[in-house]
Design a protein around this nucleic acid. Sequence first.
DNA 1: GCGGATCAC
DNA 2: AATGGTGATCCGC
Length: 442
Amino acid sequence: MDHMKKVGSSSCNDGVLLRMGLNDNKAGMQGLDKEKINKIIMEATKGSRFYENELKKDQQVNQRIEKMMQLKEKITTQQLLKAQLQVDKLVIELEQSRNLSSTIVHIDMDAFYAAVEMRDNPELKEKPIAVGSMSMLSTSNYHARRFGVRAAMPGFIAKKLCPHLTIVPLNFEKYGKVSKEVREILTEYDPNFMPMGLDEAYLNITEHLEERLNWPEDKRRFFFNTESATEKDKDDINMSAKCNEGGYSFSPVLFEDNTPLMDDHPEQRDRSVENSVIFGTSAEEVVKEIRFRIEQKTQLTASAGIAPNTMLAKMCSDRNKPNGQCRIAPERQAVLDFLKDLPIRKVPGIGKVTEKMLKALGIVTCSELYQQRALLSLLFSESSWRNFLDISLGLGSTHLEKDGERKSMSTESEINTAEDQYNLCRELCRDLAQELQKERLK
DNA sequence: GCGGATCAC
DNA sequence: AATGGTGATCCGC
């Protein structure tokens, strides 16, 4: 069979659509009229400089694919078998070093910029809106996504898809302020949490979970912010606006342990037991608590993923978006079940180009990525195919690297401070504990 | 090393 | 009329 020319022939239209057309693999974009949307996008884009440039880039990708397919043709059964043996040896090693002992959380604010703008201007609440300019949109609310309007789309095209779209200009100062409020909560669960931009973060809550087991209920009790409007009955705009300003100063106090609260603020009396929730000690409960506190403090919702490593946690947080959460249990089989039919495009690090290259090899899902591991080891660079292998096994970082910390630690000259020695010892102990745990599980 | 490509926010 | 700005990483030269 000769598939070589198939790539070339699809380059005239299909390929460009893949590059410029609608990406519906994001939250809130299922089941819309893709044909119609793509037609509008193509009409607006054809003939532009941008279009010519995209065409050129697409052809470069096609050339890469063609080169890869030629390489593939030359591979003998013998080579493939040998590669299979080598890769499978590595698989066993990787499998042995699989570490399921960390609990990693990925927090993702829902349609962040758009949600902030809607919160601060309730007139926008029922409308399709996007944040950005006529040239470029940063994000859109879920209403607008029904029209195919999404992040990274120019506003003038979005207007064609959705003539009633309201475009709100960016206000980074405001988003930064809200982001800071969220981070104040996150840092309580992991002081080393890792922010990714303004609206996302990874947390390692392994330690928090241990400590939390001994906590009394009162330390896990949180109060509804009765002054702030909740989703359902948010009629009073002034009220919520006022709470915005005021909430900033009183929120932190709310959660402090031993402060006498009621005295100088009589209106806080409604912080009685019936206005509170107690969260449990499991990872799910911790994340529910985090999301609850974020919403009480900012009136914005977040989605979250819980998993044994960052890659899985990130994909998990996407699953029940918006305003949902999802957990992958720390078991090998649970990880593999999650990956089974997952399209590789959902994996962080796999973008449009890699997706297209792998598709040319008949690989769309993570299972297929695993199936073709031997072939991939012959067609891609070492770091690439090893990354593919990690992905298909569900392996990823189990700790959050603090920027630079690793590097300075490994240089001998810097290993002298007491703090470094302490940290090093701490890490060694943790590694040892993990080893022991693995031994016991055998 | 450096520039180009890819990817993510 | 109009299709981001930036940083990180990897690859090939």
